[in-house]
């Protein structure tokens, strides 16, 4: 039982991080129908920016988080403007291939500047841990979960209560109709990239703190898993991405906790295959949109 609870705790921490990354995938997909394969690399950049802010900038957790989020927001917007916008009216496969290209570009540019070696993340949070029976909840996990929850509440607020958020929803539903309302599609897409990338940046810092190591290729696997999370939740659906992230995170910790950690990645992708067979539109996804 305690082993079970411990895995739940670990799963929720890891899952919150996946959920943060998955949100970016799902928001970008929702608005331009592109699987932004470079998203995992934006998360990697976030981890490095956080690393630099803490190590060289001597910043604490929250300032470093903020710096990472802002930097990633800017990088996300630039990627969209430079790489994806020119392809907006071309085929989806062309955009997808470009996304993969951007992903490789970011990975190897980063490697060029910082080298390929794994770095250990500086300690910014206390090592304090709480023991509830034999279940251990450490401070990092609490920070991760609270940060993720705060960001998700913020996102819900932006999407449902602000003008920009409403514009984002309108553009993702029907870009032409949105333009007829006076909504600027280009800037709305930029906002979406900025928010999604900022969340990935936050996830990067959190994961650096959690696993205590970062490297230029660290974005690949979590990126793919977050993508699975987004697909599981129903790509395009924000609540879906949150649920998907938590599910994938928990599943992964359970597989490594009870089975063999060697199989945890395989389990995630097996899960993807199963979802795609059983419910291709995901948990909260729509099959097709009705157009009268």
């Amino acid at each position: 039982m305690e082993q079970f609870l411990q895995q739940v705790v670990n799963g929720i921490s890891l899952g919150s991080i996946y959920a943060l990354i998955a949100l970016g995938y799902t928001m970008v997909y929702g608005i331009i129908k592109l699987i932004n394969f470079a998203h995992g690399d934006v998360y990697m950049i976030g981890a490095f920016v956080g690393f630099a802010a803490i190590t060289y900038g001597k910043m604490g957790f929250f300032p470093a988080l903020l710096v990472a989020m802002i930097s990633c927001a800017i990088i996300g917007v630039v990627i969209e403007k430079v790489a994806y916008k020119p392809l907006r009216n071309s085929t989806r496969i062309a955009a997808l291939i470009t996304a993969i290209g951007v992903s490789l570009f970011l990975e190897y540019v980063m490697m060029f500047f910082v080298g390929a070696e794994v770095r250990s993340y500086p300690k910014v949070l206390t090592e304090k841990a709480f023991h509830l029976g034999s279940v251990v909840i450490n401070m990092q996990q609490i920070y991760i979960v609270l940060t993720a929850i705060a960001l998700m509440i913020l996102l819900q607020f932006i999407v449902h209560k602000t003008k920009t958020g409403k514009a984002m929803r309108a553009v993702s539903i029907d870009p032409d109709a949105a333009q007829l309302m006076g909504i600027k599609v280009d800037s709305t897409i930029s906002y979406t990239f900025a928010i999604g990338s900022a969340f990935a940046g936050a996830a990067g810092v959190l994961v650096g703190i959690y696993y205590n190591s970062i490297d230029p290729l660290m974005g690949i696997l979590p990126g793919l898993k977050a993508f699975v999370a987004a697909v599981f939740g129903g790509i395009g659906s924000i609540p879906g991405a949150m649920i998907g992230g938590l599910t994938i995170g928990t599943m992964e910790t359970f597989v490594s906790g009870y089975g063999n950690s060697m199989y945890r990645d395989a389990a995630v992708f097996l899960f993807l295959i199963v979802i795609l067979i059983i419910k291709p539109s995901g948990l909260l996804g729509k099959n097709t949109r009705e157009k009268v």
Binding site: K166, A170, M181, I183
Partner: peptide, 18 residues
Amino acid sequence: RIFPEMTVFENLELGAYL
């Protein structure tokens, strides 16, 4: 071309977007 997932009120609100 309504925005089907949004409420009637939100649709009208978007009409006054600018």
